[in-house]
Simulated assay, not measured.
Amino acid sequence: MKGFVDEMRAVAMKMHTKDQAREGEKEPVGPPIAAWDPSVDGYLKFLVDSKVVFDTLERIVTVAPHPSYGEFKSTGLERSGQLSKDLDWFKEAGYSIPESSKPGIAYSNYLQQLSENDPPAFICHFYNIYFAHTAGGRIIGKKVAEKILNKKVLEFYKWEGSVPQLLQNVRIKLNHVSSCWSREEKNHCLEETEKSFEYSEEILRLILS
């Protein structure tokens, strides 16, 4: 039986460009990843702002201002600790770590606000951030590592155990949490997808800054 996560996935896939996914409907704005010319400084900005977002998500599910968020504690998809290790590695390699910047701070503030007042919208962001990172996020990480890190795989792109199984466990939880939502709440969750892509793309663009 299909659950609400299938609807979330269908809407998310349409937000991709045709070269990113078969179901993509968006026109590409910039060059494809293969043609990117990233810098270590830009990549560090991306990692720092990503950490702000993952810190916020992980704090929210721990504090659980809405009881349903407690379902998503310790899923195995958490990234905050891994990003800390990566930033320490860059520091030891002699790079200076930048301060967090506007895209990460703006997204963090928005997630905090949603988590308190709008669970369906917050869950939309939770789903898209974690699931996108295991898919397109990994591809981007690999391409960037080939160009500027001598193919080093960062902790950000390593998980304990089977990623498909971790994702499946979270899908089950997402379907369970959304099963008590009205159709209106489900539609509201789906409508938030575009915003989640906009915020994430702002952070992603830091790689090329």
Rank of each mutant, 00 (worst) to 15 (best):
F156K: 04
L174T: 08
F131M: 09
P119C: 01
L167N: 00
L57T: 00
H133R: 03
I172H: 07
P38F: 02
G81L: 05
I129S: 11
F126T: 02
I140R: 03
A132G: 03
E160M: 02
G30P: 14
H133A: 03
Q112E: 14
A35R: 11
K14C: 08
H133P: 01
K45Y: 09
K91H: 12
F156M: 05
C189T: 12
G104E: 02
I123N: 09
A10C: 08
W181F: 15
V163D: 03
V61S: 05
G161W: 03
F156V: 03
L166E: 00
S80E: 05
G3W: 11
T17Y: 00
K195F: 07
A12D: 00
K18P: 14
Y127V: 01
V5G: 02
Y157L: 13
W36R: 15
K143E: 09
R183S: 15
E27I: 14
E92H: 08
H125N: 10
E194G: 13
I203C: 13
F54I: 01
V63A: 14
P32E: 14
T56R: 10
K195N: 15
F156A: 03
K91C: 04
K51M: 08
M15G: 04
M15C: 06
G70C: 02
T75H: 00
I123T: 06
N187D: 10
I123Y: 15
H125R: 04
K173A: 01
L83A: 04
S50Y: 08
F126C: 04
L111K: 10
V170P: 01
E58N: 04
G141I: 13
I207M: 07
W181C: 08
Y110F: 12
L190S: 05
S108P: 10
N109H: 14
G81E: 08
M15P: 03
M1H: 09
A106N: 03
Y157S: 09
D19G: 15
L204K: 14
A135V: 04
E202V: 07
A135R: 09
S101P: 00
E146Y: 12
E201M: 15
K147C: 07
C124D: 11
P164E: 06
H176P: 00
Y69G: 01
F4N: 14
E191M: 13
I60Y: 11
Q82V: 06
S96H: 14
I105H: 01
G42K: 09
L166G: 01
N175Y: 15
L167G: 00
Y95T: 01
S84E: 04
D37N: 12
P103I: 08
N169S: 10
E7D: 13
F197L: 00
M8I: 05
W89A: 13
V170F: 12
G76F: 05
E23K: 12
E23N: 07
P164S: 05
S209D: 15
E185L: 11
V153L: 03
L206D: 15
M8K: 00
A132H: 02
S101C: 04
H16K: 03
S196M: 08
S200M: 15
E155M: 07
L77H: 00
A132I: 01
P164W: 12
G76T: 00
F46G: 05
E192M: 12
K91R: 11
M15S: 05
R205N: 10
F122S: 08
E191F: 15
G24R: 13
D55K: 09
G137Y: 06
V11R: 12
S68Q: 14
K85P: 00
K147T: 07
E27F: 14
S196T: 12
V5S: 10
L57S: 00
D6G: 13
A106L: 02
